[in-house]
Amino acid sequence: MLEKILLTLVSLAGIALLPMAQAGDRFHDDLSSYDNRRFDDDRWYVAPFGTFIKSGGDRHAKDGWGGGMGIGKMLDRHFNVEMKGFYQEFGGDNGPWSFAGGTVDLQYYFIRDRFSPYAVIGGGAMNSCASANCGIGAIGEAGAGFTYEVHDNFLLRSDVRYRYNNNFNAHVQPGKDEFHDMVVNVGFVIPFGDKPRPPARTEPPVAAAAPAPSRVDRDSDGDGVLDSVDQCPGTMRGARVDNTGCPVRLVLKGQHFQKNSAALTLNAKIILDDTAKSLIADPQKNDIEVQGHTSSEGSSAYNMKLSQRRAQSVVDYLQSKGVTNKLMARGYGESQPIADNRTAQGRAANRRVELIWIE
C-alpha cells in the first residue's frame, strides 16, 4: 500500500513541476545569448542534512531518524551531480533497525533563482541491520525538492524521496528482501568560492569633440557633430553618436510604462513617434537591440520577465509605425544598474529602455 502511495506522490510531483520546467526552458531560450551561457554556476559544494524516514509496512518497523553528508558539483544551469552518505535507525517488531549507505544523485533544476525547485534520481548501496541480522543491498531513490538561497555561499535545501531497497536474499528480515520507504531530507548547501557574476559591460566610445562651428558649418540636428562631417543628419534628440554623427545608443528615461506593466504611456508614445521618424529617414538601417532594464524592487525573476515584456512593447510600437530596421528585444532585469538602487532617484534611473545600434 505504501509503495502505491509513494509512487503516486512522486508522479504527481513530477507532473506539477513539468510546467515550471517548460516555462523555465522557454524563458532561458528567449534570452539565450552570449550572456546567459556565460553565467552558469559550476562550483563544488558540501551539503549536510538530517533525515526523517517513514518505513514501509513490509518492514514491520516504526518511523525513524538519521542524517548524512553530500559532496556535489553544479554542472550548469540545470544539473547537479552529488555523492552522499547517510546513517538512519529506528525500532521495529523484530528488533532495532539501522541503515548505513550511500548514493550517487543527479538533480535537475527547473530554474536557478533564489527559490529553485528540482527533481532528483539516485542509486547506490545500503547495509541494513535488523537486530543482529545484516546484509548489503541495492537502493534506488526518486523525488522532488527545492533550495532557497540565503546567501551566495549558503542555501537551505529539502526534498522528499521514494526509496526502493532490495537485499538480494540477505535474509535481514526472513521471507522478505524488497522494501519501500519514504525519506524526507532537510539540510543546507555550502558552495565553495565566489558565485559567478556577469562581466562589466563596455560602453561605446564617446563621440569626439567637434570643431567650433563657423558661419557656414552648423550642427543642425544638435548631436555635437558638424554638418560637414555628419554622415547621419537628422539624428533623434538625446541619442549618443559616434564621431561621424551616427547614433550608437538612445536611452529612454522617465515614466514610460504604467506601474508593473509593459503598457506604454502617452509620453512614451510621443517620444517613440519622433524616434520612429528618425529611424525611417536613416538610410543605414542598422540592426538595433532594444534593451529593457529595471530597478531592484521585486524579485529578480519577476524583473527579468517585466524587462523583456517592456522591451518587446517598444519593438512592437516602432514596427507599427513603419520602422524597417531589424529590432531585437532583450530583457536584462536588474542585472545592469547605472545608479544606486538604494535611493529613489537611483531606482528611477535604472528603470529605462535603451536602443543600441549594432555595427
Rank of each mutant, 00 (worst) to 15 (best):
A138L: 15
K285E: 12
D42Q: 15
A16N: 03
T324D: 13
Q336W: 07
S278C: 14
M69H: 00
N325W: 04
R163E: 12
I15G: 10
D221T: 08
A132H: 12
A276K: 00
L250H: 07
Q107T: 09
D152N: 14
A210Y: 02
A349D: 05
K84M: 12
M304V: 05
I190F: 04
A200S: 12
K277M: 08
L279M: 11
A170V: 10
A61W: 00
R240E: 12
A210S: 15
L252W: 01
H78A: 02
S228C: 02
G333M: 01
P204L: 01
S98I: 11
V172Q: 03
A281Q: 07
K269V: 04
D35H: 09
G333I: 02
G254L: 09
A301D: 14
M236D: 10
S131V: 05
Q22M: 12
F188V: 11
G50W: 08
G122R: 00
R309S: 10
D242F: 05
V81Q: 13
R218T: 14
P199T: 13
R59I: 08
V160A: 14
N267H: 13
D41E: 10
V206C: 02
M83V: 15
L12C: 09
G68Q: 01
C232K: 03
Q231N: 15
N303W: 02
Y302I: 15
T147M: 06
S335K: 09
V248R: 15
D152T: 06
S320F: 03
R352N: 09
V184I: 07
V225E: 05
G145C: 07
G137N: 10
Y164T: 07
G238W: 02
I15V: 07
Q258G: 15
E334G: 01
S214N: 09
H60T: 10
S33K: 06
D221E: 13
A301S: 15
Q345C: 11
R43F: 04
L9S: 12
V314C: 04
E3M: 05
H256T: 03
W357Y: 09
S295A: 14
W65L: 11
R215D: 14
D219I: 03
N166H: 13
K305P: 00
I71L: 10
H151P: 09
A23R: 11
S300A: 13
A207H: 05
G56K: 03
D316K: 09
K253P: 00
I111L: 07
N133W: 05
I358A: 06
N80E: 15
D76L: 08
Y34M: 10
N341S: 12
D282L: 00
